[in-house]
Amino acid sequence: MELSDLEQDALKEFFNMGLGMAADSLSQMVKKEILLSLPQLAVVSHRRAVELVNHQDEDRLVAVRQNFLGELSGTALLIFPGGKSLELVRTLLGENMPLEALTELEQETLLDVGNVILNAFLSSFTQMMNLDFEFEAAEFLKANCEALLDLSAHRIAFPNKPDWNEADEQAFFLMMDFKTEDEEQAHNSLQGYVVLLFSKEAMEILKKELERILSQF
């Protein structure tokens, strides 16, 4: 399934609004301004999504996963590149926190942050798309990218369906680069990016909704 240029533009703008909401929430948590890059969107096969994440970071990744179910079902992953997750925890909990304590609190803190960011992002996105869905509890994951993007482990995939083929599944690969003002100056950024995974069925629903929205103009 392919999206037209205008459909991709619309989707990027909806993501942009979602990221704006997410950045505002994160900014209130870290009490610093969050600088956002332009959202980069690619609709790619599952295989390509794995390659893209691998290209970003080949080591083990830290991520928060949020499944959503409803008119549009899918999975959102907030991925923190290697080592950057502890930077975020340090920013949130204070510079003087010993490394041991930081590591202990990493999972809990990142789950909180991921929950806030992904909820803000997804709520804004679905509001714009006029689609309803509910969130499952966010999960904390530490894995390599193959495992992280393993669709069979996600709710959106239906490996039991006879016609299911992982190679046919598609993903929105959305890069969300966020960093605080201080880190920008120190060239030591807090970074993260979001990957949205949808089943083929969900992508078709999304395309129809985009067509409906764009037909109003």
Binding site: L19, G20, M21, D24, L36
Partner: peptide, 24 residues
């Protein structure tokens, strides 16, 4: 006119004497 609704952004616009409209 922006989706970046952080307080700092509003303050920047206000300091410049320009309006701030939140997307959507």
């Amino acid at each position: 006119v922006t989706a970046n609704i952080q307080e700092k952004m509003r303050q920047r616009a206000e300091a410049m004497g320009i309006g701030f409209i939140m997307k959507p």
